[in-house]
Design a protein around this nucleic acid. Sequence first.
DNA 1: CGGGATCCATACCTTAAGGTATGGAACGGG
DNA 2: CCCGTTCCATACCTTAAGGTATGGATCCCG
Lengths: 187, 187
Amino acid sequence: MPPEGLSRNAYYEAGLELLADRGHSGLTIAALCEQLGVTKGSFYHHFGDMAGYVALLLGHWEAEHATRLIALSESVSDPEERFDLLQKIAVGLPHGAEAAIRAWSWNSALVAAAQQRVDEARLSHLTRAGVDAGLGPARAWRMARISLSVLIGMQLLERPAQRASMEDVFGELRHWMAVEDPAAIAL
Amino acid sequence: MPPEGLSRNAYYEAGLELLADRGHSGLTIAALCEQLGVTKGSFYHHFGDMAGYVALLLGHWEAEHATRLIALSESVSDPEERFDLLQKIAVGLPHGAEAAIRAWSWNSALVAAAQQRVDEARLSHLTRAGVDAGLGPARAWRMARISLSVLIGMQLLERPAQRASMEDVFGELRHWMAVEDPAAIAL
DNA sequence: CGGGATCCATACCTTAAGGTATGGAACGGG
DNA sequence: CCCGTTCCATACCTTAAGGTATGGATCCCG
């Protein structure tokens, strides 16, 4: 199957794009085919049905925008440097598509499962990064939760997400994190 | 119209309940009527069509869980006391329904408009509260954004939202806010 | 006690989206 | 050159959800 992989990837890109600007209800087989200039025959040839396509699309998203980026961050040893990278990674995520996926997860068990895996992976990675940076476990856990919540909130509050205000807010968060407070860190 | 207002409110309660445990795609006329033990005739009698019902339902939510609570908070003068109240208010919100509405807003312009009004009202109230508590305007703005983002993140990360972890996280946030840092506050 | 208004049940229509069946064009290997 | 496989177009089916038309039941009010 030499000229086939390309086609599949085209469906993924088109899917994420549709999600970003029409939401999950805009991700229909008809819309996908229209955007790619084909008809439903093509879609049902490459993917058995909608559920199959969705599973592959989510797998693509998970691998590309979670697993891969987390591994990238893990390759950095210096804690401060790693948080720099993490902030850049966060700002560069496909916020539109991610927000739509999160919304979508409220109406599909399949999507909810993928979303939960991605959240869990990001959360545990953030917690590890916090511990590496010297926070106590409980405090690192809360820091991770707050950080991920802020990412989610920013993704959902602005449409499209504004790079500038996101950097501002993340900067404030890191400033708070850096504050010396032995009593709290003891946790 | 004496025995009518009751019926309308029943539709609102049923609607928020359906949203909370089936998401917006579960909020169908058929599901509403089934839950209330009536048929579609009743629905179309009370509300012209689905769009009309949705508009009224959102208005109910906005008035009950945004406008009213903000006014309540504004009646408290002491800044510290006000933040205590705000935390209690936040924890007590109908998180399931609110999360579903936020997800829904990605697929309906009407819902998106209501959601934006509620977000804007909460955001500007939080900013005012921050200024009253002694933060500089820019810092108060970021604090408000972070706080609302955390609420949103917590609403979406846990299903159902856990009261305990929410209080933990809010506590950490307020601890950070209280840290003395003249340089940052100068902003 | 008659009549209009309120409230809702029943039956039917329409549309959009997923899904299926089938055939045809292009392309490569034997 | 032929045949099978890949890839996709066309036409049709099915289902779910919004919406409409109509009639009946109840209740208040004059």
